[in-house]
Simulated assay, not measured.
Amino acid sequence: MVPHPDDPEYGVAAAVAKWTSQGKHVRYALACRGEAGIPGMPPEECGPLREREQRESSAIVGVDDVEFWDFPDSQIFNTPELRAKIAETITELAPDVVVTLYSGPEWAPGAPNQRDHIEFSNAVAAAYDSLTDKPRWLFENGPGGTHAEVVDDFIDVAVASLAAHDVYLSVYKPDVPVLEQAHQQVDMTTLPPLPGFEGHRAVEFILKRQSDS
């Protein structure tokens, strides 16, 4: 569960590719279609384009089940409406694990987290807490993880998945080739080696909730 298109690819795509290769079913739920994400492009053009890029990107890592909720891009807040939609989706799917984005203020010193990310992640935690029948685990993907997934064999597919956001990345950093941007981002989120995982590429996860229900 994430707020925007491309959010999975900026963090968990390598882990998702590994999970789907093992036969696990992964479903993506996104709060918006990213309609405000490309400067100079009108929302009615940007939203469908970014949805197409997200579906193409998701398919590369084996995710064909992608849902968009149409909350307003860049105006995502921890509201009762958002919490209700998250809780409804979790109840409908009854997953073993829910993964969302990092809710902390900074990814690293001087690298602030987006407000949409923080608000959405807090809404996910609140919705999880409201459920009678909770998934076994709720994780955030972010720094200082309590858990990690080794993804040595899934770096290239993660790069391809992020690079599928071709138009978005071309506008985001027009002077850097899309594939180079994708390599840089995947390297940043899977390197340097985590303690206990030396010699391996890994994706970090923070355990936020655990339930025996």
Rank of each mutant, 00 (worst) to 15 (best):
D65M: 00
P42D: 11
D73P: 01
D64Q: 09
K18I: 03
A17L: 13
V16I: 14
R55M: 11
G34F: 01
C46Q: 00
Q75H: 15
V66W: 12
V12E: 00
V63A: 11
D7Y: 04
R50P: 06
M41Q: 11
E56Q: 12
V2W: 05
P43D: 09
F71H: 07
E53A: 10
Y10A: 05
D70C: 12
C32R: 06
E67R: 13
Q54K: 06
P39L: 03
Y10L: 15
G34P: 05
Q75R: 15
S58P: 04
C46N: 01
P48M: 08
Q54H: 04
D64C: 04
I38N: 00
P48F: 14
L30Q: 03
S58N: 13
D65S: 12
Q22R: 14
G23I: 09
G34D: 07
A29E: 06
D6P: 02
C32N: 13
E53V: 07
S74N: 13
E67W: 08
E35L: 11
G47N: 04
Q22H: 11
L49P: 07
D73F: 05
P48E: 10
Q54R: 11
H25Q: 14
R50Q: 08
A13P: 10
P3V: 09
E35Q: 11
H4E: 05
K18L: 12
F71G: 01
K18T: 00
Y28A: 01
V12M: 15
R33V: 00
V26I: 15
E56I: 09
I38E: 00
Y10H: 08
S57N: 12
D70W: 01
R50W: 01
W69M: 06
L30K: 05
C46P: 01
E53G: 08
A17K: 08
E53D: 09
R50F: 04
H25P: 03
R50H: 07
A31W: 00
G47P: 04
P5T: 04
E67V: 15
Q22F: 08
C32G: 01
R55K: 15
D73C: 00
G62L: 05
D7P: 02
A59Y: 11
Y10P: 00
V26K: 09
P8C: 05
R50C: 10
S21M: 05
E56W: 00
E67C: 03
Y10F: 12
G37F: 02
Q22E: 15
Y28F: 15
Y28W: 09
Q75L: 04
A29Y: 10
F71E: 09
C46W: 01
R50A: 06
E45R: 14
P43Q: 10
H4F: 03
W19D: 02
Y28E: 04
C46G: 02
P72E: 14
R52L: 07
D73W: 13
Q75A: 08
R33H: 07
S58Q: 08
S74P: 00
P39G: 06
V66L: 13
S57H: 08
P39Y: 13
E9R: 05
M41L: 15
Q75C: 03
D65V: 02
G23C: 10
P72V: 02
S21K: 14
E51N: 02
A14S: 15
D64R: 14
P42N: 10
A14W: 08
A36Y: 06
R55I: 08
D65N: 11
V12L: 14
H4K: 03
T20M: 04
E67D: 13
P42I: 08
R50S: 11
V66G: 00
S74F: 14
D65P: 06
K24E: 09
P42R: 12
V16C: 11
